[in-house]
């Protein structure tokens, strides 16, 4: 859905940690914010990440 190259460069805008692709969301491995991908475009806005936040593992 999004290119490997793009996934490699994206980090969480809030804590600058690498994000992982999980169930069509980009998940921050440190703070648990989850960023949606809409029409193939990652939405890297902190407020969007907050809406879908999960407790970090």
């Amino acid at each position: 859905m999004i290119s490997k190259e793009l996934l490699e460069i994206l980090v969480c805008p809030a804590c600058k940690t690498k994000v992982l692709l999980e169930e069509e969301m980009l998940v921050c491995t440190s703070c648990g914010r989850r960023y949606p991908i809409r029409n193939g475009i990652p939405v890297m806005l902190i407020e969007e990440g907050d809406k879908n936040k999960i407790e970090p593992k």
């Binding site: 290119s3 793009l6 994206l10 990652p42 806005l45 902190i46």
Partner: peptide, 17 residues
Amino acid sequence: VELQLGDAVNLPYPDGS
């Protein structure tokens, strides 16, 4: 070209990219 939605106050890229 790769496009993202985001806010420049909090850039979603690592240092030195």
